[in-house]
Nucleic acid binder design. Structure first.
Length: 857
RNA sequence: GCCCGGGUGGCGGAAUUGGUAGACGCGCCAGAUUUAGGAUCUGGUAUCCGUGAGGAUGUGGGGGUUCGAUUCCCCCCCCGGGCACCA
């Protein structure tokens, strides 16, 4: 036997077929096709300097298997790849070395592309996108302009992390335990001017849209919790001294009679007028102290509740009682109205506070269990109302709506809905991000812009977006889409400006412009002012967009990546719609997936898109841990480099093993020995397919082989559909083990095995397919169909149980009747030994499976 | 604290409209082949008792439903994830 033929030379094979696919454009997705479409999408990577991590391919392989399988099933498949390439690391590297982030990014992208290509994915590389490409981010900016036009973007002072030592704004993830990640310096909260997107306007739609999505339940639940819808009422309490209204939000209007004090947040606008002069010093000290507290301190539940009485009272609208008003930092200014009515008997937090300060605790909901009534406060469950005037005796839950109606009738409140969701801080004080296409002008010029006919006029939102700078109110004007992309200027220094502004603020020739109120054209003020009265002075917005921006809509750009006229052409969008499958890490359960839904829904509402939801079916692959069971990390030294794995075992082995590790969604450790196992399997396939002396022409004749083969077709097909790739692989192993044992088998059998294997180990499958005399590419062959009728054996095994325990078994023809089987079971010598001296009380027969004799005595 | 997900051999994991627990792979043991190693092949491998045939136990722990439970119900323990004063 020619030993050489059996060698599995994966390096040569993989190179050969990767070149073939590229040359033949095997995986080009057709925009005009009569075939049904299938769009498999991976969360695109941030191309880091560290290169591809072993965790990246896990999801990519999964989507690739689906893509190749669907292609075999006759679909026109789109499986694209691109780069989420704006972001901090490239900028930090630039600060350190002076290398322009675009240079770093390009090098990283090249490396990522090389690595991803080496794994042999069925990717249409003609559709590659890059969020830092002006041809791409021009559309990111275009979407922003739409949001701005519709009043969904505004500017506000918002607290951010500020590091005085670094003189820089830090992102949440750059702050570890109240210190800067770089240099370990103390950080503080500081208010900075931010561009904010009004995602809260979409809270209801984002919540309702979840119902129709085929997403992991846990992810839907997380989004639901994040949006945090609650129903209740706003109630107005009249302030005794001034007659003004203090409005609170409550989900428990049924406990209004149990209110014994009120609390306003330290930042509440009415606080200063509530404080009586004797209390002023104490309250001022308290407000100052809580302002200094970090978020962490303020949300520490273990902390004792603190607060100060303001000296003022208000009137409970349901019973006219005088209620003291306190200030306490356990009430948040950012939720509801920033003020609460406190019901210590039925709210844990209020109860704790009331006990601290000796405030009355008045029960108004009876505990349903009479005996437990004492000592079980606070009680927040359902019950009958007590101490509540005319509502006494009513079921509290049912009474809520009645009370709300009464409040409304009396003009002292109304039903209200609240969300935990906050507006989205959309600006970063950074260089390496999409410039925000706005300029700032004076009030006078703004008024002019609103009346001048031109491309600008219609893009201006109904309500002006303003900011205060050096005591002057400035107005935001959009840079119209005709002037996009607004490119990042070159900068000499990537250091933050030191004032908390972006490095862009330091480039005055970019910052200060002549701006044409008619056309939206801008020209640096280093140039002479153009003629025409519509040219005014303006300064550019210096903030850039967050990394989320580019990833909010990239799934659309793959459909039409080179379109310079539109974000995506209507006909292409109509054909491709959106991804049929989207895979990525669960860490994006909320932010990316919520932001992307927001933008997509907005574009749908604007008539740009035909569908409201971007990702119909979503899946999260699980984490791959190091061999030691810990998270892979450089410092632990347990990182597996995919390049080295491919060198040693080949891309096919890597692909196969990532899928064989365990369930796709599970967290599972890597294993060097394990990859040897699947590599061995591929070698077996290679060897069997090259043993021509075992191959027979014509159809498979061995019944046993035929049965295993069709069982394998069935199981592999079902397993792929269910994303249970580990099961599919083990079934193929069963088949090859069988083929190895039989003397000979039909060459067709080998070919079918290769077709089943092709989505998992495409290079080897192509090579062997060709060596068996077929024409490439195997990906264009129709998927094999299982013949179910072959799976039913003529003889079936039926097991005998006594009291549910296995005691024997027998072979029967498949059309056997119950009585025959039961008598056979009773006649079995082993079964008999367990029946001896006992009485059979029940005989159970599960057709074709088992007999169970229940005995007594 | 609250809300999820999970706990099956030495290891990764199969098996659920309730019906032979441990497929497949790894590791390990024995054997074949080989000058040797590697590679490959064959057989074995949950635990305990037993020379053996065989028996008992066994899917985190306890209880329940059932002829029969990894699967359904109740309580508890452990691990992982998310949220965290949201009124």
């Amino acid at each position: 036997m020619a030993e050489d033929e059996e060698i599995y030379d994966f390096s040569t094979i993989e190179k050969k077929w990767q070149e073939f696919w590229e040359r033949e454009n095997t995986f080009r997705a057709e925009d005009q096709s009569s075939k049904p479409k299938y769009y498999a999408l991976d969360m695109f990577p941030y191309p880091s300097g560290a290169g591809l991590h072993i965790g990246h391919p896990e999801g990519y392989v999964a989507s690739d298997i689906l893509a190749r399988y669907k292609k075999a099933c006759g679909f026109n498949v789109l499986h694209p790849m691109g780069w989420d390439a704006f972001g901090l690391p490239a900028e930090q590297y630039a600060i350190k070395t002076g290398t322009h982030p675009s240079v770093t990014t390009q090098a990283n992208v090249d490396n990522f592309r090389r690595q991803i290509k080496s794994i042999g994915f069925a990717i249409d590389w003609e559709r590659e996108i890059n969020t830092t490409d002006p041809g791409y981010y021009q559309w990111t900016q275009w979407i922003f302009l739409k949001l701005f036009q519709r009043g969904l973007a505004y500017v506000d002072e918002k607290p951010v992390w500020w590091c005085p030592n670094l003189r820089a704004v830090l992102a949440n993830e750059e702050v570890v335990d109240g210190k800067s990640e770089v240099g370990n310096h103390p950080v503080e909260r500081r208010n900075l001017r931010q561009v904010v997107l009004r995602i809260t306007a979409y809270a209801e739609k984002l919540l309702a849209g979840l119902d129709d999505l085929d997403w992991p339940d846990s992810t839907k639940r997380q989004q639901k919790a994040w949006i945090g819808r609650s129903e209740g009422a706003e109630v107005h309490f009249e302030i005794e001294a001034s007659g003004e209204k203090l409005t609170v939000y409550t989900t428990r209007p049924d406990t209004l009679f149990g209110v014994t004090y009120m609390v306003v947040a330290p930042e509440h606008p009415l606080l200063s007028q509530l404080v009586i002069s004797e209390k002023k010093q104490e309250v001022d000290d308290y407000v100052l102290a809580s302002a200094k507290k970090s978020d962490l301190d303020r949300t520490d539940l273990a902390k004792e509740k603190s607060g100060v009485f303001t000296g003022s009272y208000c009137i409970n609208p349901v019973n006219g009682e005088k209620v003291p008003i306190w200030v306490a930092d356990y009430v948040l200014i950012s939720y509801g109205t920033g003020a609460i009515m406190a019901v210590p008997a039925h709210d844990e937090r209020d109860h704790e506070f009331a006990e601290n300060f000796g405030i009355e605790i008045r029960q108004v909901i009876a505990h349903p269990d009479e005996d437990k009534e004492k000592g079980t406060l606070p009680y927040s469950g359902p019950g009958v109302m007590v101490n509540s005037g005319k509502y006494n005796g009513l079921e509290a839950n049912i009474c809520k709506s009645k009370i709300i109606a009464d409040l409304e009738a009396n003009g002292v409140g109304k039903g209200a809905v609240n969300y935990k969701l906050r507006d989205w801080i959309f600006s970063r004080q950074r260089y390496w991000g999409e410039p925000i296409p706005l300029v700032w002008v004076s009030a006078e010029n703004y008024q002019k812009a609103k009346v001048i006919d031109g491309s600008l006029k219609d893009l201006i939102p109904e309500n002006a977006v303003t900011t205060v700078q050096n005591g002057q109110i400035l107005y935001a004007l959009p840079i119209p889409s005709s002037e996009l992309p607004l490119k990042l200027p070159e900068v000499e220094n990537y250091q933050p400006s030191g004032t908390g502004e972006s490095p862009l603020a330091t480039i005055s020739e970019w910052l200060e412009v002549w701006f044409d109120l008619e056309t939206g054209k801008a020209l640096s003020q280093t140039e002479p002012k153009p003629n025409g009265e519509n040219w005014v002075t303006a300064s550019r917005e210096t903030n850039t967009m967050p990394q989320w921006a580019g990833s909010c809509w990239y799934h659309l750009r793959y459909i039409d990546p080179k379109n310079s006229e539109h974000l995506v052409a209507k006909d292409k969008e109509a054909y491709w719609q959106g991804p049929d499958f989207y895979i990525g890490g669960a860490e994006h359960a909320v932010l990316h997936l919520l932001y992307a839904r927001f933008w997509h829904r907005f574009l749908y509402d604007e008539g740009v898109l035909a569908n409201p939801e971007p990702y119909k079916k979503l899946f999260h692959q699980g984490l791959i841990l190091g061999e030691d069971g810990n998270k892979m990390s450089k410092s632990v030294g347990n990182v597996v480099n995919p390049d080295l794995v491919i060198d040693a075992y080949g891309a096919d082995s890597l692909r196969l093993f990532e899928m064989f590790l365990g369930p796709l969604e599970a967290v599972k450790p890597w294993s060097e020995k394990g990859i040897e196992g699947v590599h061995r399997f591929l070698r077996k396939v290679n060897r069997e397919c090259r043993r021509s002396n075992k191959h027979l022409n014509g159809e498979e004749t061995n019944k046993e082989t035929l049965k295993v083969l069709h069982e394998t077709i069935l199981k592999v097909t079902d397993a792929i559909e269910d994303l249970r790739f580990n099961v599919a692989i083990s079934q193929m192993m069963i088949l090859i083990n069988h083929l190895q044992k039989v003397e000979s088998y039909s060459i067709d059998t080998a070919k079918i095995l290769l077709q089943l294997l092709a989505p998992f180990a495409p290079h080897l499958a192509e090579e062997l397919w060709q060596s068996l005399g077929e024409k490439p590419s195997i990906v264009n062959q129709p998927w094999p169909k299982a013949r179910i009728e072959l799976l039913v054996a003529e003889e079936i095994t039926i097991v005998f149980q006594v009291n549910g325990k296995l005691r024997g078994q027998g072979q029967f023809p498949k059309e056997i009747d119950k009585d025959t089987v039961i008598s056979a079971a009773k006649a079995d010598t082993k079964v008999q030994s367990f029946l001896e001296g006992k009485e059979i009380v029940k005989e159970i027969y599960v057709p074709g499976k088992l007999v169970n004799l229940a005995v007594k005595g």
